[in-house]
């Protein structure tokens, strides 16, 4: 049994090696498109890992993560343009406000299960998109445009190079992974999994399921919102159809599922495979006409769901256990 448990995790040296690669990557690869792609890999990796906390560990399968993403993006854009609050503080406040939103909205919704929960999350995300599209105070359908500032770490704006953005998102990505790493080994993480595997039994053992469900939603919403705030600084504008696009929710869930849910390595692996695939097909086919690249992306999702329903981590497990057990 011990053996089995050990093989299920990604070996730590692979993670450390990956970290080293990530640190030197933009110095080796100078191509702007590749660097942008790497930024999106990390951004979606961050969100997918946040999704994993809810979906993979606690079993709350959300297909409306874009609600948190968009609220985070809007909050920091709004705080910055209206009150001149420093983007870094705005990013943090955005995360906290979104976490609060997640907990309050999540309180009733987390009582739903399975498909009912998933449908409620889409409905929630759609309500947010419609609300922000019609809310004059935050620019309605026009959204918010951020003024261009002098580039510095303090203003969170960089124009001459993508490198600072890369390292900032890498930092946020590492933080979320550390949180999951600690969570995986903690009592809280154990409670999350207990709720996922059998909610009644967990409650019977005295685990406060409402509290732990909301805790996982809160953490997930916080980190998803950080990705949203990052995008605000990266693209310098927010718009309802852009930051509340349902395709973001699907991509986030897909990255996690493709990699394999309920494990630390899953979302990392998923982001490394799916995001470059989608970015490069976009670059390749995007000009050929509207929709062709996204069509291929949809087909890709279907193929992955058919071929590897347990995710790439499942494939990894099969390969690694086969190697060890074969004489």
């Amino acid at each position: 049994m011990m053996e089995l448990v050990r093989h299920r995790r990604f070996p730590t040296f692979i993670l450390l090696f990956g970290l080293f690669i990530a640190l030197v990557f933009p110095w080796v690869v100078r191509d702007r498109f590749a660097q942008n792609t790497a930024i999106f890999v990390l951004m979606y990796g961050l969100m997918a890992q946040a999704w994993n906390i809810m979906g993979g560990y606690t079993g709350l399968i959300s297909v409306g993560q874009v609600a948190y993403f968009g609220i985070g993006a809007y909050t920091s854009a709004f705080l910055y343009t209206h009150f001149g609050i420093n983007p870094w503080i705005a990013l943090l406040i955005g995360g906290l406000i979104t976490a609060l939103f997640g907990v309050i909205a999540g309180y009733p919704v987390s009582k739903l299960r399975g498909r009912y929960f998933s449908i409620a999350t889409i409905a929630m995300a759609e309500v947010m998109r419609i609300s922000f599209s019609n809310w004059e105070y935050v620019g309605a359908a026009r959204g918010i445009q951020l003024p261009i500032e002098k580039e510095s770490l303090l203003t969170f704006q960089f124009h001459s190079s993508r490198l600072p953005y890369y390292y900032i998102i890498l930092f946020l990505f590492i933080v979320v992974n550390l949180v999951v790493y600690v969570l995986e080994r903690s009592r809280t993480g154990f409670y999350f999994r207990a709720i996922r595997d059998n909610e009644e039994a967990a409650a019977g053992l005295g685990i406060n399921r409402s509290f732990y469900k909301l805790l996982s939603i809160g953490i997930s919403a916080f980190f998803t919102a950080l990705a949203g705030s990052f995008l605000t600084q990266f693209s310098l504008y927010v718009e309802p159809d852009y930051v509340f696009a349902s395709s973001i929710s699907i991509t986030v869930a897909m990255v996690a599922v493709l990699g394999g849910i309920g494990s630390l390595g899953g979302p990392i692996l998923g982001a490394l495979v799916l995001i470059p695939l989608s970015e490069y097909t976009r670059a390749w086919l995007g000009k050929q006409g509207q929709g062709l690249d996204l069509m291929l992306y949809g087909a890709l999702i279907i193929v992955f769901c058919i071929l590897e329903p347990k995710g790439l981590m499942g494939l990894w497990k099969r390969i690694s256990t086969k190697k060890r057990t074969s004489p």
């Binding site: 699907i250 869930a253 599922v257 062709l292 087909a299």
Partner: peptide, 21 residues
């Protein structure tokens, strides 16, 4: 459950973008 869910999502995504194209 998740792969069942995403497979139909992917299908929808495919068909909508096919229509756009």
């Amino acid at each position: 459950y998740v792969s069942r869910l995403l497979a139909t999502f992917g299908l929808g995504f495919f068909l909508i973008n096919m229509a756009q194209f």
